[in-house]
């Protein structure tokens, strides 16, 4: 490994004991032979690693717990919302004819729309494409714009593909 790679490892995995054993050995062999990288390692340790490892740890202030409880009591816990299964169970356990009928009606309408889309999809897509082209032509015809033909061509190809 070159000095640059060794120094990257000194800044990260080697110093933080994240490097695999084989990589660790390579770094150590390199350090044994390279005084510049040894100096680099010493500087990083002294300036960027050890000062933080010696950081003071503070106790949370005693008043923090009373602050937390005051905030909690000011706005009590709401009951947890029911999960999806719970909601379905409630629906089955308490049948509501009007709701059930309207659900069936919505499903029927939804099925009919899907079926229509499936059978008439290609026709509609074609109509949509035509409308889009017309809109583009109108836009370029009446708008104060410069037509970039290559962009227009790509647009048309995509619409008709």
């Amino acid at each position: 490994m070159k000095c640059r790679q060794i120094q990257d490892l000194i800044l990260t995995d080697y110093t933080d004991n994240e490097a695999p054993e084989a990589v660790r050995r390579q770094v150590e062999e390199h350090l044994a032979a390279c005084s510049a990288c040894r100096q680099f390692q010493a500087a990083v340790r002294a300036r960027a690693v050890e000062p933080l490892q010696e950081a003071e740890r503070a106790q949370a202030p005693a008043r923090l717990w009373s602050r937390v409880t005051s905030a909690i009591y000011a706005q009590p816990l709401e009951p947890a919302p029911a999960g999806v299964l719970e909601r379905i169970k409630n629906l089955v356990a308490a049948p509501r004819p009007a709701l059930a009928l309207s659900t069936v009606a919505v499903l029927l309408v939804f099925g009919a729309v899907l079926g229509r889309l499936y059978f008439t999809g290609s026709v509609q897509r074609h109509q949509l494409a035509e409308a889009a082209v017309e809109e583009q032509i109108d836009y370029f015809a009446y708008g104060n714009v410069t037509i970039e033909t290559d962009i227009l061509d790509i647009g048309l190809e995509e619409i008709f593909s």
């Binding site: 990257d8 800044l11 990260t12 995995d13 500087a43 002294a46 960027a48 690693v49 000062p51």
Partner: peptide
């Protein structure tokens, strides 16, 4: 994570070398 730690330590080493933040100045 690795990249942020590397940048952080590079910054700290450079700033202390220049004596801009308190630390070892060798």
């Amino acid at each position: 994570v690795r990249s942020r730690i590397k940048r952080a330590r590079t910054t700290l080493s450079a700033l202390q070398r220049k004596g801009i933040i308190e630390g070892v100045t060798s």
